[in-house]
Computed example of a mutant assay.
Amino acid sequence: MTDGEETEMRAVSSYWSTRSEDLNRGFVHPPLDYEQELLEAIRMGNESKALEALHKINTLEAATLAGYPLRSKKNSLIASCTLFTRAIIRGGVNPETAFQLSDTIIRDIENTAGLEQLLLFEYEMVLQFIAIMKREKEILHYSHIVNLSIYYIREHICRELTLGRIARHAGVHPSYLSDRFKRETGMALTEFINRRRIEESKSILIHSNQSISDISLMFKLCSQSYYTQLFKKYTGKTPGQYRKERG
């Protein structure tokens, strides 16, 4: 018998063993329609429908995916995270943005020590994917030039961002981009960049032990005091207060 044939036999044997256990205890997976309903709600950025679909799924018995409940639930959430990632990509989210969110959430899942916290985190996870979906849908109303600029800013948020560099990427004159960006978004390009840097820095504050000074340098803000000033302007809290509350 070849190695391939042995692997196939083990897979078949494992399948029927699991199938037998499920039949003996009368377990049936949640209807596929429920999962599709949840994924479509996430893709459309519909919070209420997504939470309703997730609740319907969670009223049913969950599959056993490991030898003990905590690991089983973690495995289930990681699988869901993968599906949610594909759902928002289909909805128009930049794949790199979606995968970065997925990486962050999977680390959060692994770092969660209690089953009850995981059950709550599942709903939070859905809301995080929907928040990204809503944010991406907002820019669909902008012109191609402004969208190009926004995507460039997001992908290079930890680099030096100048009007000239962004305008070159968009293929227009800097003054034209500056005027058009403000007319369409309602804010100056510099303010948009600063807001985006503060938004991105929130996750770093919560999920890392980096100093506030190092985070300000990471996002190319000239000093810790300037970073703190901007953070408080847009959130009403200092970075230290935000980290303490969310950490």
Rank of each mutant, 00 (worst) to 15 (best):
residue 128 Q to D: 05
residue 136 E to K: 04
residue 124 E to S: 11
residue 88 I to E: 03
residue 173 H to S: 11
residue 172 V to K: 12
residue 166 I to P: 04
residue 230 L to H: 01
residue 9 M to H: 01
residue 246 R to G: 05
residue 241 Q to H: 08
residue 189 L to Y: 00
residue 166 I to G: 04
residue 76 S to W: 06
residue 96 E to P: 02
residue 156 H to I: 03
residue 135 R to P: 02
residue 154 R to P: 01
residue 119 L to E: 14
residue 241 Q to L: 02
residue 55 H to R: 15
residue 89 I to F: 09
residue 241 Q to C: 06
residue 216 S to F: 06
residue 108 D to E: 13
residue 4 G to K: 14
residue 155 E to F: 08
residue 180 R to M: 14
residue 72 S to G: 11
residue 23 L to H: 01
residue 113 A to R: 02
residue 218 M to K: 15
residue 196 R to Q: 15
residue 187 M to V: 08
residue 190 T to I: 10
residue 9 M to I: 04
residue 189 L to I: 01
residue 115 L to V: 01
residue 194 N to M: 11
residue 32 L to I: 08
residue 172 V to H: 02
residue 108 D to R: 03
residue 80 S to G: 13
residue 11 A to K: 15
residue 123 Y to K: 13
residue 6 E to T: 15
residue 43 R to W: 13
residue 47 E to W: 08
residue 138 E to K: 12
residue 205 L to Q: 05
residue 128 Q to Y: 01
residue 217 L to D: 05
residue 52 E to D: 12
residue 166 I to C: 11
residue 13 S to K: 14
residue 88 I to A: 00
residue 15 Y to P: 04
residue 150 I to V: 03
residue 88 I to H: 04
residue 78 I to A: 11
residue 207 H to A: 02
residue 174 P to N: 03
residue 93 V to N: 04
residue 57 I to P: 00
residue 196 R to Y: 07
residue 68 Y to V: 03
residue 106 I to A: 02
residue 42 I to W: 03
residue 113 A to I: 10
residue 209 N to Y: 13
residue 46 N to I: 07
residue 49 K to V: 08
residue 139 I to N: 01
residue 147 N to Y: 00
residue 6 E to G: 03
residue 222 C to Q: 11
residue 232 K to E: 07
residue 3 D to M: 08
residue 208 S to V: 13
residue 98 A to K: 00
residue 128 Q to W: 04
residue 75 N to V: 12
residue 168 R to W: 13
residue 115 L to T: 14
residue 37 E to I: 03
residue 37 E to P: 10
residue 147 N to V: 00
residue 208 S to R: 02
residue 102 S to I: 00
residue 237 K to S: 10
residue 67 G to R: 03
residue 69 P to R: 15
residue 46 N to M: 05
residue 190 T to A: 07
residue 134 K to M: 08
residue 229 Q to M: 09
residue 111 N to G: 06
residue 207 H to D: 10
residue 90 R to Y: 06
residue 203 S to C: 00
residue 135 R to L: 13
residue 213 S to A: 15
residue 18 T to M: 03
residue 125 M to L: 15
residue 43 R to L: 03
residue 102 S to K: 00
residue 129 F to P: 01
residue 198 I to C: 08
residue 117 Q to D: 15
residue 121 F to R: 05
residue 221 L to E: 12
residue 163 L to I: 02
residue 110 E to Q: 11
residue 29 H to Y: 14
residue 211 S to A: 03
residue 57 I to A: 00
residue 201 S to P: 01
residue 72 S to Y: 09
residue 242 Y to V: 04
residue 233 K to N: 05
residue 60 L to R: 15
residue 174 P to K: 14
residue 206 I to Y: 06
residue 123 Y to M: 12
residue 49 K to H: 04
residue 123 Y to C: 08
residue 193 I to E: 02
residue 189 L to W: 05
residue 144 H to C: 12
residue 215 I to K: 05
residue 142 Y to E: 12
residue 75 N to W: 07
residue 56 K to I: 07
residue 142 Y to A: 09
residue 195 R to M: 09
residue 103 D to R: 06
residue 236 G to F: 09
residue 36 Q to S: 14
residue 72 S to L: 11
residue 237 K to I: 00
residue 107 R to W: 14
residue 207 H to G: 06
residue 243 R to M: 08
residue 226 Y to Q: 13
residue 95 P to E: 04
